[in-house]
Amino acid sequence: MKRIGVASLSMSAAALVTLVVSEWFTPVATIPVKGDRPTVGFGSTYHIDGTPVKLGDTMTPVQALKTAQAHISADEQQFRDSLPGVEMTQEEYDNYIDWVYQYGIGRWINSPMRKSLLSGDHAAACDALLLPQYRTVAGYDCSTPGNKRCYGVWTRAQKRHAICISQLN
């Protein structure tokens, strides 16, 4: 796998489509998982202007795509800035941007994934995607077999880990 400097990368169109499909579209703000924040559109917890989403807020599919793209663009710049000198494949980059979209740039900055990538340990960064703090919602472990509360959180973490591991070489 050919890695290039993170500063040269941006989220691929295919990854954007995958992200919005995994987030589903919700025209009226709801709480997707017990203990989570209200989301609208494609998993947005904030509007483009930075105001938090409140229950009952509405959004059209076009507004949802614009909102998702605005958040991703802002997060991508901070993401790239947080990884000076780091090289990744396009797939790694897309995978971590998907993670940032779900968990936020603030959690990324302090994450073990970022620390591992800065030290050149891509395998440790991959394994950190499965840490307990990234598979729980409101204190509930989403990896619990048979749970119907937040199993998607765990399956998404496993999918990210598999993508990440596939890029090692």
Rank of each mutant, 00 (worst) to 15 (best):
A74K: 12
H71W: 09
G56D: 05
K34R: 13
A7E: 15
T60P: 12
E91V: 14
I48Q: 14
Q90L: 09
M11W: 12
H71Q: 13
Q90D: 11
Y46T: 11
M88G: 13
V53I: 05
D49A: 10
T60V: 15
V40M: 08
P27H: 01
T60W: 08
F25T: 03
T30N: 08
Q77G: 05
A29L: 02
A29R: 01
D94F: 02
L19D: 10
P27Y: 01
Q69L: 15
E23R: 05
I48K: 13
S10W: 04
T30Q: 11
P32S: 01
F79L: 12
L16V: 13
R80A: 15
T39M: 06
F42H: 11
K54N: 05
G43Y: 02
T89N: 10
T26P: 00
A29W: 01
V33I: 05
H47T: 14
Q90V: 02
L19E: 09
Y93M: 00
L9V: 07
P32K: 01
G56A: 06
A7P: 03
I31V: 07
Y93F: 09
I72R: 04
Q63Y: 10
S22Y: 03
K34L: 07
A13W: 12
D57E: 04
T18D: 10
A13K: 15
T60E: 14
G41S: 03
T26Q: 07
A74T: 07
R37F: 08
L83A: 02
V20M: 12
V28Y: 00
S8M: 05
G43E: 05
K66Y: 14
F42K: 02
Q90P: 09
T58E: 01
G41Y: 04
D36F: 03
L19P: 06
M11L: 15
V20G: 02
A64Q: 08
M88N: 10
G85I: 11
T67L: 04
E87P: 02
V20L: 11
V21A: 14
V17N: 15
T39K: 05
T39G: 11
T58P: 00
D81C: 03
T30C: 07
V33K: 00
T67M: 05
D57W: 03
P38T: 00
A29K: 01
D57I: 00
M88D: 12
L65Y: 12
P52T: 12
F79T: 13
I31Q: 00
L16D: 02
T45V: 11
P32A: 00
M11D: 11
L83T: 03
H71S: 11
D75V: 04
Q69E: 14
D94R: 06
W24R: 15
Y46R: 12
Q78M: 11
V62W: 13
Q78Y: 10
G35D: 02
F79G: 13
A64E: 08
M11R: 13
G56K: 08
L9P: 06
K54I: 00
Q69R: 12
H47D: 08
M59C: 08
K54T: 04
G35P: 00
P27W: 01
T89M: 10
I72Q: 08
G35K: 00
V6G: 06
P61N: 07
T58D: 00
G35M: 00
P61Q: 09
A13R: 15
M59E: 11
A70Q: 14
K66L: 14
L19I: 14
M59G: 06
A14W: 05
E91S: 12
D49C: 11
Y46A: 08
A74F: 08
V62C: 07
D75K: 07
R80I: 15
Q63I: 04
P52S: 11
